[in-house]
Design a binder for these strands. Sequence first.
DNA 1: GTTCTAGAAC
DNA 2: GTTCTAGAAC
Length: 676
Amino acid sequence: MSWSSGLIKEILNPNNLIISSELGVVIADKYPKAQHHYLVLPLADIPSIFQLNRSHLPLLEELHLLARNVVEVKGARWTDFQVGFHAEPSMQRLHLHVISTDFVSPTLKTKKHWNSFNTELFVPYEKLFALLEKENCFSRLPKSLRDELLNKPLICNQCEFVGKNLPTLKEHLLQHLQDPERTTSDKMEKQEVDEKAYFRDELKRKLKDKRNFLIETDRAVVIKADFPKSQYHFRVVAKEELRDITQLTEEHLPLLDHMMELANQIIEQQDHLESRDFRIGFKVHTFWNRLNLHVLSDDFYSMAMKRPRHWNSFHTELFMPFQMVHMLLSLQGSIESISEEKYNELRNQRTLTCNQCEFSTDLLLDLKAHLYQHWQRKEGEREQKKKMENIVRLLDEAKLNDDDHSVLKLDDAATGTAQPTPLLKAEPETKGTPTQNFRVQIQHGSGNDNLMYGPPVNMMNQLNPNNPFRNTPPLNINSLNPAPQHRPNYRARNPNQHRMPGQHGPRAPWNGPRFPPNPNWNPQNFPQQGFNMFAPGPSINQQGPPQYPYQPIGAGGYGPTGPPNSVRPKWVQKTQQKNNQNPNNVEQKPNLQNPNQQIPHQQKPPAQHPTQYARSNQQNRPYKNPQNRQNSNQNNNPNPQNPQNPNKQKYKNKKPANPNQGAQASQPTNNAVPKT
DNA sequence: GTTCTAGAAC
DNA sequence: GTTCTAGAAC
C-alpha cells in the first residue's frame, strides 16, 4: 500500500519540515482538519503507536516538546490545541497530531474525521504516556468498540450541540470560531463571574492596608487608582459600607462634603496642575463594591485607557460630577440607578469626542494620540509659565540684592536648571480641618518620600507600567505602523500562568524560548531608533491621522527626556517601591493587582531558522526523572526544576542537510528500542 | 490517508 | 430534484 507510506515520503523532503530536532520532525498535515494541524514524527522508524513501549517515553517527551515548539513558532496558543495519537492510525510511521480545537477546515469532510479526533479514537499524549508507563504497550481497540466510536453522533467539542450531519456541525463550529464570546461555555462564564466578584471587593481590601493611603481620616481614605485613566487619578473611598451613589440619602451629605474636602486636599498636594484641571465625580454604574469618588486630571492621557468603555465611563452620563450628586441628594434625597440597557448603550457608544475640543473619532487609538498632543501642549504651557514666574521672582530678588550671582541664577532659570519644585508639597497639618482624626500622611522624611517625590500616577518612563504608552507600541496599529507578522520578541504563553478572563492574546513567560525570526520580517516596519515621542507632532487641527507617539525601549533607559525644560514628574526610583512601580520586580511574578500590565521583554538571541529547533539540552530536559515528571503532570509545567524557565531550548546551529543523517544521529535511541 | 461514486436520505 | 454518506479503489 503505497499511499500509507505517504508520511515517510513527506518527511524526506526538507522543505516540508516546519521544525526539527535530532529525534523528530514536524510537518503540516497535508489535509488539515482544523486551522492548525501539524504532525510530529520520530526520525526513528517506528511504524505506529502499537510498537511503543516504556523505552520510548523519552522519545515521546521529545515529540511533545516539538509539538509545543511548533505551536509557538506558529504564534498560536498552546491551550487551543489538542495533542495526541489516533488509536486506529492509517498512515505508517508513528505520528503525533497537534491540532487546534476549532476544527474549522474544508478538508474535514466525514464523520470518521470528526470522531477520530473527538472520541476515544483520539488518545491524548498524556493518556498514552501514562498507559505505556503502566502497561508497557498500547493495544488495538476491539473492532466492535472501534465501530461504535466511529458511529457516535456528531457532538460539538465546545458545547452540547449535536449535529444532524457533518455540514450542520461544521456550520456550528464556524460560529464558535467567529464569535467565541457568544458561544463561550457556561463553565467559562461562571468562572469569569466568580473572578469578577473577587475583584469587585478590591477597594474593601485596600482599606485594610494603610500603606495604600495617601490621606486617611476616620470616614474615608484617598488612594491612587490602580488603573489610572489620567496623569493623576485618585479615589476617595468611603469607609462606610456603601456600594455606590444609589445607596446614598440626604443623611450622607456630610460624608460627601467630607470626601470633597479630601479631594481638595489631594489636589492641593500637587502643584503641577491647577485645581481647575481636575474632575471630581462618581461613576453612576460602578464596578467596585464601595462608594468611591474619582479625582482625576482632565488630560485622560493614560495607558490604562484601553477600551472605548473606559473613555465613555468618564465622558457620558455614566460619570456624575460631584456637584450634581450633591444637588440631587439635597433636592430629592436619593439617586436612581441607571438601567442595564442604558448603561450598555452609553458604555459602548462608539463615537468618542475629545473632552478638550471638537475632535471626535471611532478609534480609541486616534483619540489617545490626539489627547497626547493636548497633553504635550499643556505641559509646554505650564513649563513656560513656571519659567516666567521664576524669572520674575529672580528679577525681584535681583532688584533687592543687586549682585552678580543673581544674574547667574537668571541664566539657570532660563535654561531650566533651576531647582525643581517638589511635586507634592508636605502639609504637616491642615488648618481648620473639621475632622479630629484627620491627618496627612505625606510628610517629609516620614518614610513616604517615594509618594511625595515620585510621580503620583503616571510617569514617562518606558519601564514604568503606568506610562501611558509603554505597552502600546505600534505593533497593533496597522494603519500607522504595519506590524511584522511574526513578532521577534514573542514567547509562548505558559498555560499555567494566571490570566484574566477575557484578556486576549498570549502572555509570555519571562525566559521561555522565542521563535526564530521570520525570514520575511522587515526591520524597517519598526520605528527607527531615536524616534522621539516628544518631537512636535502635527497640529491638532491638521488633517490626517496623528503620528502615534512612541519611544523605543532602551534609549536612555528611563524614557524620553521630554520637551526641553518641561516640568513633568521626576521619578526617583526607590528600592522599596511597590511591585507595580518597580520594573525589576514586576517581571518575577504576575501582578494580580494590575493583571493587564505588560512586562518588558528581555532580549535573547533567537534561533536562526524555523527548521533549526533542537531538542532541549540534557540539563533542561523535561521529565528527566520520574519524580519530576510526576510533578510536572500536576502543574503541566514541563520543566519543574526550573519554573522560571519552563521551556528553555537550545537551538541547533545547523540542521542536517539530509534528514537521513538526522535519523542516523538518533541511532542510539533507535537501537535502544526493541522492535516488536 | 484521499477520491470517487452509488445509493440512501431528504 | 439535491445533499450526504459509506464503502471500494487507490
